[in-house]
Write a protein that binds this DNA or RNA. Structure first.
Lengths: 240, 240
DNA sequence: ACCTGCCACCTGCTATAGCAGTTGTCCATG
DNA sequence: CATGGACAACTGCTATAGCAGGTGGCAGGT
């Protein structure tokens, strides 16, 4: 009787098996970047603890990690507050992310396995279809997979963790123009294809350049970075 | 257990006012990058705790932060082990650091105050004297201050924290050739002066290029990066 | 000798309690 | 009325205790 049931493998609920500290970390991070916790708001370990129905240690652990991410700042024995993140800080983080994704692409060009390259080709193929159908949801998912594949191919934990933390800022603010220019989709597709080509060619420098330009351009269309007015001029010293 | 002997490291510093978690974090990180804790070594929260004479919570907190840095990896309910960091991983981290320091230099070129620029000039002046006198110790200290000033000028917590974590890897391995080429010192001085010039000129692109090249070159002379075989293929940072 | 199942021990993980600074309020005093 | 100081109520921080899951070894059965 029960033996049959014992053979059944658990459905293994997806993400409910995480530690409380990890869940608190993600939840708090989401609350901050989504604006539910306004900048400057005071955070109390105990307060948050019984608000979440858990103990104070996991909360403290989460706050420490958030502090390392720069999302909160805690003054010893005085309190913890949500850090102020203005548009300029957000732009800085975007530029940092662009640089890191560039390095990731360079490393991936050297180390990526053929299997990963094959999956990447599939992803770009899905992107092409989604672009033609203007399926934004599928496009976002494919885009996520695209970058995750490249980052994962590096195998560098520091790089992956850092980019994950930066990725959380993507939905900061968020009245970002959905109705961007109609040629933004095809352009992004071209850029992705170009990155894939560089990876297949095992050209680290080219992959890095293209990836970085892609991320920067995407940040510009999302209004987090200002359009490069004169930044692209010759890099000569301007005499003062 | 066997890690008890490995815990004996430097007196570290006179900072007694830091939290136990913070001290445990730095101490453990130093033990790992200095090789006192060999890769693959098992770390027990309780074991470390009464080896350090403190409770288990600060230790756990430190381990979580080290995990985010990629220095340890913990399998839930099974144990925590020191991550394997081979030469290739070290090279990756060096390239990441070069990219991040480049971004820091670009941001500093835009935001740096005149006071910071003045101090930076003083630091370069000290470097020049130390280079002439071949005073390695003063040179290292000035170098530290040079980079710290630039990073601090960005005011970006994420950037500063990440670079601090990466900086810890500088003394990983460490049989690095002290008797490097005799022209290494003047070259480093020229590079620092060049970076300073770009910062004074408020040229982000140039500052980034020079800073990144400087860090990469320094990593090459320290034997953590392989010399660029096809070095004349410039990594153009400005996308077209 | 070999498999098997149980059990002590280990691990990370969480909760509770209490310490030590900091801050704000309220009453006493000039 | 203004001012200062002590007390109460916070805060982050640390220690202790105990839970749940995983591992290894030892005994008992085949």
């Amino acid at each position: 009787m029960a033996s049959d049931a014992a053979l059944q493998v658990e459905p293994l609920a997806e993400e409910e098996t995480l530690s409380l500290g990890e869940r608190a970390y993600r939840r708090l991070r989401a609350s901050i970047v989504q604006g539910a916790l306004a900048p400057g708001a005071k955070i109390s370990e105990r307060g948050l603890a019984n608000a979440l129905g858990i103990s104070a240690q996991p909360v403290r652990e989460a706050l420490r990690r958030l502090e390392q991410d720069g999302l909160v700042v805690t003054l010893p024995r005085r309190g913890t507050v949500v850090a102020e993140i203005g548009p300029e800080r957000l732009a800085e983080l975007g530029r940092i992310r662009a640089a890191l994704e560039g390095v990731a692409a360079a490393l991936a060009a050297e180390r990526m396995s053929e299997a990963d390259l094959a999956e990447l080709r599939q992803v770009v193929r899905r992107m092409r279809a989604a672009t033609a159908a203007a399926d934004h949801e599928a496009l976002a998912e494919a885009n996520e997979r695209f970058h995750a594949l490249i980052q994962g191919a590096t195998g560098n934990l520091f790089l992956i963790r850092s980019l994950e933390a930066l990725h959380a800022f993507d939905e900061y603010g968020r009245p970002r123009a959905l109705g961007s220019t109609p040629n933004a989709l095809p352009r992004a597709l071209r850029e992705h294809a170009g990155i894939l080509a560089a990876l297949r060619a095992r050209d680290p420098a080219l992959a890095e350049t293209r990836m970085r330009a892609h991320v920067l351009r995407s940040l510009v269309t999302n209004r987090v970075l200002a359009p490069p007015a004169r930044a692209r001029r010759g890099k000569s010293l301007t005499p003062d």
